[in-house]
Design a protein around this nucleic acid. Structure first.
Lengths: 128, 128
DNA sequence: TTTGATGCAAATGTTTTGCATGCAA
DNA sequence: TTGCATGCAAAACATTTGCATCAAA
């Protein structure tokens, strides 16, 4: 009954997010896909981004300023936001999945996961 | 030159957030403060919430659905969001501050902090 | 053909802002 | 008095949604 149909727009969005190392917002995705599909609408971009997040094909990153950012990199990794330039970077670091056990220790509910966002100054902004 | 002036509205907001165990949104804060100050405007609530976050008097929690939530509890603690009822709960758990060191290990920038959000099912939603 | 996906535009929900007035210092 | 804070309303954003049409299956 689910019945998901193929759409080239959705494929293009997924493809773009899996290739880029940026962490674009919905609007940035829209701007990019528009180069290939000039008629695509922002609504379609939003619909597909939500769909892809639900399916687990991409990750949604809640950003302090403006809207959400999206990431097509499915390998376990962590994000860093520079408080100066606001860029989102990938961090190369060992897993911190153990924090879920720590959180679950005294909790009567069920911890299914967690999302961590690191912040500070990125390499480029270090020298002021 | 900053010159911050006293305002009873701001005090009321701060007071409310430091007392309640809920994690209200801007609108919920507005509704509550309105009982004491019927003329307060939503704009004032937003202005003061932003101000208090900047000053470190309260914490902003980015929630999946709808707007941000706010917390006046300044002691180090962690938050949990139930994927079923969407409530925000405080978690009693040991510190996981060490993850900042882990993140900083191979990073050329500067990690100043992090925010972690746990999610899953809360005790009330466990039995369906 | 049947039904999900799209483009377009209008609608929604949240947060910010301009401005005249109020109030703290 | 000076100038930050407020109330009000309009504006700015980000995101969602209704609907007629398009295109997979």
């Amino acid at each position: 009954m689910a019945g998901l149909k193929y759409s080239r727009q959705r494929e293009a969005i997924k493809e773009y997010l899996s290739m880029t190392k940026d962490h674009p917002t919905a609007d940035m995705v829209y701007m990019h896909i528009r180069q290939e599909y000039p008629n695509i609408s922002l609504g379609t971009v939003y619909r597909n981004l939500n769909l892809l997040v639900e399916q687990g094909d991409i990750i949604r990153i809640k950003h302090k300023d403006g809207g959400d950012h999206f990431d097509g990199n499915l390998e376990e990794h962590y994000h860093f936001i520079c408080k100066n330039c606001n860029n989102v970077l990938d961090l190369e670091m060992e897993s911190i999945e153990h924090i879920n056990k720590i959180a679950g220790a005294g909790f009567k509910g069920k911890i299914e996961g967690s999302s961590t966002l690191f912040y500070g100054l990125c390499p480029d902004c270090m020298g002021q």
